[in-house]
Amino acid sequence: LKKGSQVEALFSYEATQPEDLEFQEGDIILVLSKVNEEWLEGECKGKVGIFPKVFVEDC
């Protein structure tokens, strides 16, 4: 996944840490960066945070 690409949430993700990005199933997320193999940083609904890659798929 490249910076600036968009992904769609397959499942809702509930934030458990302040840096987490919370979203609902079906939301479109703009990928800002790759944190590591399992986590991405993205923006959704004006909020920025990190989230697990397994919760999303390429649009």
Rank of each mutant, 00 (worst) to 15 (best):
E22M: 01
L40N: 00
A9M: 05
F51D: 03
V56Y: 04
E38Q: 00
A9L: 06
E57A: 14
L21T: 07
Q24M: 08
P18I: 03
D27P: 01
D27Q: 10
E22A: 13
F23E: 12
S5E: 13
E41S: 09
G49S: 05
E57Y: 10
P18G: 04
V54H: 15
E22C: 03
G49M: 12
F55R: 05
G49Q: 04
T16R: 06
T16H: 03
L40S: 02
K34P: 01
T16V: 08
K45Q: 04
C59V: 15
E8H: 14
V56N: 07
D20W: 02
P52Y: 02
D20T: 04
C59S: 12
S5W: 05
I28K: 15
V31N: 11
I28T: 14
G46P: 02
L40Q: 04
W39Q: 01
V7K: 00
C59H: 08
P52F: 06
L40Y: 15
K45C: 10
E25Q: 14
G49N: 02
K34C: 09
G46H: 01
F51T: 10
C44A: 09
S5L: 09
E41V: 12
P52L: 11
E19L: 12
I29E: 07
A9V: 00
D58F: 02
G49F: 06
D27M: 07
A15Q: 00
G26P: 02
L32W: 01
L10Y: 08
F51R: 02
C59A: 13
C44K: 04
D20Y: 13
E41R: 13
N36P: 00
Q24R: 09
S12P: 09
I50F: 07
Q17R: 14
G49D: 06
I28C: 05
L32G: 11
D58G: 15
K47F: 09
D27F: 05
L10S: 01
N36H: 09
K45N: 14
E8K: 15
T16S: 11
V56L: 04
V48Q: 09
N36Y: 02
S12Y: 01
P52Q: 03
K3M: 12
F11E: 04
C59G: 03
C44L: 08
E8D: 07
K34G: 01
F23A: 08
I28R: 14
P52T: 08
L10W: 00
L1A: 01
F51S: 08
G42Y: 06
T16F: 04
N36D: 06
W39V: 08
I28E: 12
G49V: 00
Q17H: 11
Y13G: 10
S12Q: 00
A9F: 10
P18W: 02
L21G: 07
T16E: 07
P18V: 03
L32P: 11
A9Q: 00
V48T: 12
V7A: 03
V54I: 11
Q6V: 15
S5N: 00
G49C: 02
E41P: 06
K2L: 06
E37D: 13
V31R: 04
S33R: 15
K47H: 03
E22P: 10
L40W: 09
V31E: 02
V56C: 05
V54R: 15
Q17Y: 11
K34Q: 10
K3W: 02
E25K: 15
G49A: 04
G4K: 10
A15G: 11
N36F: 06
W39D: 04
A15S: 13
L30W: 05
C44E: 01
F11H: 06
E8G: 11
K3F: 11
V48W: 01
S33C: 06
Q17L: 09
Q24N: 12
K34W: 07
S5A: 14
L30I: 13
Q17N: 11
D58S: 12
I28M: 12
E19F: 03
E22I: 01
W39G: 07
N36E: 00
A15H: 00
G26T: 01
G26W: 01
L30F: 11
E14I: 08
G46Y: 08
L21F: 03
Q17S: 15
S33A: 11
L30T: 15
A15Y: 03
G4A: 03
D27R: 08
K45S: 03
A15P: 12
V7P: 05
F23Q: 13
E43F: 08
Q24W: 11
V48H: 08
G46A: 08
I50K: 13
L40D: 05
V31C: 07
K3S: 06
K45A: 02
E38A: 08
V54E: 11
K2A: 13
C59D: 05
Q24L: 05
K47N: 09
F23D: 05
C59L: 11
T16L: 12
D27Y: 04
G26F: 11
Q24F: 10
Q6E: 10
E8L: 15
K53H: 00
E41M: 14
S5P: 01
L40K: 00
V35C: 06
S12H: 06
F51N: 04
G4V: 06
L30Q: 15
K53L: 02
V48N: 08
V54Q: 14
E25T: 13
L21K: 02
K34A: 08
A9E: 08
K34D: 12
D27T: 03
G4I: 15
E37Q: 04
W39C: 07
E57N: 10
V56T: 06
P18C: 03
G4H: 02
V7L: 03
T16D: 07
E25H: 15
F55V: 14
C44V: 06
K47C: 03
K47L: 08
G4M: 09
V54K: 15
G42V: 02
Y13R: 15
F23I: 07
F51I: 05
Q24A: 10
V54D: 13
I50Q: 03
C59F: 12
G4R: 05
G49Y: 05
E14M: 06
F55T: 11
Q24P: 02
K2D: 14
N36M: 07
E57S: 14
E43R: 05
A9K: 09
N36S: 04
K47R: 11
L32I: 12
I29K: 08
Q17V: 03
G46L: 10
K34H: 13
E14G: 09
E14V: 12
Q17G: 15
F51G: 07
V31P: 12
S5Q: 08
G46M: 04
E25M: 09
V7E: 00
L1R: 13
V56Q: 04
K45M: 07
D27I: 10
D58P: 14
D20A: 10
S5V: 12
K53T: 02
E19W: 10
V48G: 07
K53P: 02
I50V: 09
C59I: 13
E22N: 03
I29A: 05
G49W: 11
P18N: 12
K3E: 12
Q6L: 15
Q17T: 14
L10I: 08
P52V: 04
A9H: 06
E19T: 12
G26S: 06
V54T: 14
P18Y: 05
F11Q: 02
V35A: 12
P52A: 08
S33K: 14
G26L: 08
P52M: 09
I29M: 03
L30N: 15
K45D: 13
L30P: 13
K3D: 07
L1V: 09
D58L: 05
E41F: 14
V31F: 08
I29Q: 01
K45V: 02
F55H: 09
V56R: 03
E43H: 08
S33E: 01
L32Q: 11
D58W: 05
I29W: 12
C59P: 13
L1G: 12
P18Q: 01
V35N: 05
G42C: 02
E37C: 11
T16Y: 10
E19S: 09
T16Q: 10
E14F: 09
V35H: 01
L30Y: 13
G26Y: 00
D20R: 05
S5F: 12
Q24C: 10
C44N: 00
N36I: 04
C44Y: 06
F51L: 02
L30S: 15
T16W: 03
S12T: 11
L32D: 12
K47A: 00
E14N: 13
F51Y: 08
I29P: 14
Y13A: 05
Q17F: 01
F11V: 13
A9W: 07
W39F: 06
F11M: 11
E25V: 12
L40F: 05
K53G: 12
E22L: 09
K53E: 08
V35K: 12
I28Q: 13
A9C: 14
